[in-house]
Design a protein around this nucleic acid. Structure first.
Length: 816
DNA sequence: CAGGGGCGGGG
DNA sequence: GTGTACGCCCCTG
């Protein structure tokens, strides 16, 4: 008997000789790859019934023949469990193989003596991890012996397997890759038809591009293969030699891996990268996935897109945009549309494309390294394999975590809703958060408070849980959710619910970590803090999500109901204390100090906190010497979620001035930013006004360079399929006539030139515009003025006043 | 305004 | 295969 300690990274199961085997792939503490086989786990599910003995008797008699197999129940036992906090006896029904579970369930679901069947659709590997308390990436000890197996790594058969706790593999061996393909201008991507041209790798001690068109180069990083088949073979070899724990790509689930797989099939090459010699599994569909047994295929794009989206500023998730925001680094600039032509006719120019390819793999590697700590912390909390967590959205993460915790709390999981139930749930809507309409204006000395983790702390403090809802024991005793006249929802005062217990645990863990980080920065603890925050903040959405097992619209409604109550409570108390309430959204209030001091505000905050229950707390978010709120597009009402603030260090916090984005000219964006700066930082309305007038004059005199008036718009569909010909479509057509390949996704740049008639007839390719022949009226009236109109309105100036020139003012004075 | 359809990322 | 399939934005009836 031997002992091995290792960090499991991937889990699969197989049925071998009619036995179910769990395979755990990972890295040992002495840094070797290993596979551990565990045969000591049986599939099971739960049956709820009032006639336990009768049902047990009938269950064990079931025989379903299928091909040469017989599905049957191997044993049953009665267990005491809870379902939504209600105590109940349940029959735990065991089968021989995982695939027997749905078969048996199909037989018994019609039995009238059965109330419900549960946990019949929990993936076998997940069930295994939960029941054995094994958390992927954290240390596990195995007792057993090495066995002979034709795998790429040593195989160990487990007699006993124990989790050793929290310590995890922090620096896994990561290999990033990226491919370039042959894709003639304007053609869509066709893996069946067009070959892969090059592959780049970036990893520890490895930096390499392989391509199969030879050209002269001094680069040591470029390697040549004979043909595409040779390239694919090298792709396989390099991964095998490098032995990564993680193979990462950017959108590699949807592009790189499926592409390579298709090309490999063309050449009748097996893409057998799995550590068990299995082939890469590509699942095509609405959400493509690519899995390699034993190696974690990590699509870093998917993680960033699904989980980090809310925390990023960029609204494009292209590698270039994401890398610039997260790494401060960009892609190499090459014209990819020309690659196919250069490949065919000018191979001597290919080196630039190799560099480009290599840079992409480098950025992918760096992104993976940067994001991995957060992903890993989610893995450790949720307890599922890295591969799975990488591809999960927030509700899946919450549900994964709840399923794991359910085992600890002896709760049986509610079932997933079926189609008709989903449609019913989708019909249910409820009121959301409270947003206070601001009075447009310029304000001084603004203090912002916000509730720390408002919704999670409400769930915890008000015991909001599907199992504690409207309990008979507290009817009339417990407070009902405020602000809901049609719905009476209350939550048990005696029994603490499953969801509040769990979320309370997340909140307190997070508080402890924050205390530590405050004293000393720590990359891994910050990642854990972020993971805990992401997860806790997802519970409210989960409760109202139609696909959730622990769905409860009553709970979701109560969360927002209490949320509105608490924020409105602060607003009315602030007013009683003579603060001027400027704005409020969901969990924050903006107060103008007026005659009061910051000390007064702090005292007020303390008083508020004394009155809050449980884990609820209001925090001091910040002080801003100046701020501006503008009115909505129509009418004198304040625009919600649209304001700008200046911090004491002079930096601006601009929210929701969304009109100025991609498809606006640079000059409009620039003027807006500058105006906000002048107003908030220098407090000089006259200067801002003069500045705008100057820009308007410069536009009239064509003193503004052409590149500042270029408008960028992306083609959203194929050129031929546009019904409405907007300016960008007209220009795209013109480009096409000139031989430029243009299609879906192409960025169209244009300038509106002078003249009369439709804008689209005057939109021109910037390069074709001579002598700054842009239509200054258009840029003044449709770009620059609209971008600042609302700001000046707040300051008491109308659009007309912005446009008025000195001469006009003189005339006005003259005519009185 | 509800409901269907298509896109995102990748070359 | 303890199947299964996202979520947002735009367009249309």
């Amino acid at each position: 008997m031997a002992k091995v300690q290792f960090y499991p990274l991937d889990v699969v199961y197989k049925v071998v000789n009619n036995r179910t085997q769990i395979y755990l792939f990972g890295r040992t503490t002495d840094n070797k790859q290993i596979c551990v086989i565990d045969e000591n786990f049986e599939p099971y599910f739960y049956v709820l019934t009032k006639q336990i003995e009768d049902v047990q008797e009938k269950l064990v008699k079931i025989r379903v023949e299928r091909d040469e197999d017989v599905s049957s129940v191997t044993k049953t036992e009665v267990v005491h469990k809870k379902l939504l906090s209600k105590e109940t006896d349940a029959i735990k029904v065991y089968t021989k193989l995982p695939r027997d579970v749905p078969v048996i369930r199909d037989v018994i679901k019609e039995w009238e003596m059965i109330d419900s069947i549960h946990e019949y659709d929990i993936q076998f590997t997940r069930r295994y991890l939960i029941d054995k308390s094994i958390v992927p990436s954290t240390l596990v000890e195995v007792e057993g012996s090495e066995v002979n197996h034709k795998f790429r790594v040593p195989v160990f058969k487990a007699d006993k397997i124990t989790s050793l706790g929290d310590e995890s593999l922090r620096e896994p061996r990561v290999l990033a890759f990226d491919i370039e393909t042959y894709n003639p201008d304007g053609e869509s991507i066709q893996p069946e038809k067009n070959p892969m041209l090059m592959v780049a790798f970036y990893g520890e001690g490895l930096k390499k591009v392989i391509t199969w068109k030879k050209f002269k180069t001094k680069s040591k990083e470029i390697e040549f293969a004979d043909d595409e088949a040779g390239l694919i073979k090298r792709f396989k070899e390099i991964i095998r030699e490098h032995q990564p724990d993680i193979l990462t790509g950017y959108f590699s689930d949807g592009f790189d891996i499926p592409y390579i797989k298709t090309r490999a099939e063309k050449h009748k090459i097996k893409l057998d990268l799995g550590l068990d010699l299995s082939e890469v599994k590509v699942k095509a569909g609405k959400a493509d996935t690519s899995k390699i047994t034993g190696i974690v295929h990590l699509d870093i794009f998917k993680f960033i897109f699904k989980v980090m989206r809310g925390s990023l500023d960029t609204d494009s998730y292209k590698l270039d945009a994401v890398a610039s925001e997260l790494l401060g680094q960009k892609k190499k600039k090459v014209d990819l549309d020309k690659l196919a032509g250069i490949w065919d006719n000018k191979p001597e120019e290919l080196e630039r494309y190799c560099d480009y390819n290599l840079q992409d793999s480098f950025l992918t590697y760096e992104l993976c390294k940067k994001m991995f700590p957060t992903l890993l912390e989610l893995v450790k909390i949720v307890g599922l394999p890295i591969y799975a967590v990488n591809r999960m959205g927030f509700s899946q993460l919450v549900e994964g975590y709840l399923l794991k915790q359910a085992q600890q709390f002896n709760e049986i999981a509610p079932n997933k809703p079926h189609y008709d139930e989903i449609s019913k749930r989708k019909m249910n809507t409820y009121k959301g958060a409270f947003v206070f309409e601001p009075k447009p204006g310029l304000y001084k000395d603004i203090v912002i408070f916000d509730y720390r983790s408002l919704y999670p702390s409400i769930i915890s403090s008000h015991n909001i849980s599907p199992g504690t809802l409207n309990c008979s024991c507290c009817e009339g005793e417990a407070e009902t959710t405020p602000g809901e006249k049609e719905h009476k929802h209350w939550f048990c005062k005696k029994i603490k619910g499953f969801v509040p217990t769990i979320i309370g645990d997340l909140i307190t863990r997070r508080m402890r970590i924050k205390e530590i980080i405050k004293k000393k920065e720590d990359k891994f603890l910050s990642a854990r803090d972020q993971a805990l925050k992401l997860l806790a903040n997802s519970f409210y959405g989960y409760l109202g999500f139609f696909g959730a097992r622990w769905y409860s619209i009553e709970c979701a409604r109560s969360v927002t109901g209490w949320g509105r109550f608490y924020i409105q409570d602060v607003i009315s108390k602030a007013r009683k204390n003579d603060f001027n309430v400027l704005y409020s959204d969901t969990d924050s209030v903006f107060l103008a100090l007026g005659e009061k001091t910051r000390k007064d505000a702090e005292k007020f905050l303390e008083a508020i906190n004394l009155g809050l229950p449980g884990l609820m707390e209001m925090e001091y978010e910040g002080f801003y010497p100046n701020g501006i709120f503008v009115s909505a597009k129509e009418g004198p009402y304040g625009a919600k979620k649209k304001y700008a603030l200046m911090s004491e260090d002079g930096s601006l916090k601009i929210k929701g001035f969304e009109a100025v984005r991609r498809n606006w000219s640079f000059i409009a964006k620039e003027v807006q930013e500058n105006v906000l700066n002048i107003i908030l930082k220098e407090n000089d309305t006259e200067k801002a006004l003069t500045y705008v007038k100057t820009v308007v004059k410069e536009l009239r005199n064509k003193e503004i360079p052409l590149d500042k008036v270029v408008i960028h718009t992306k083609l959203q569909k194929e050129l031929g399929s546009y019904d409405a010909v907007g300016p960008h479509v007209a220009v795209a057509k013109e480009m096409k006539n000139k031989g430029v390949e243009i299609g879906i996704g192409s960025m169209v740049r244009y300038v509106v030139t002078s003249g009369t008639g439709r804008i689209r007839d005057r939109a021109k390719i910037p390069e074709d515009v001579k002598d700054k022949d842009y239509d200054f009226d258009y840029y003044i009236n449709n770009q620059v003025i609209p971008s600042v109109e609302k700001i000046f309105e707040v300051l008491g100036f109308t659009k007309e006043e912005l446009l008025r020139t000195k001469e006009q003012r003189k005339l006005e004075r003259f005519f009185g």
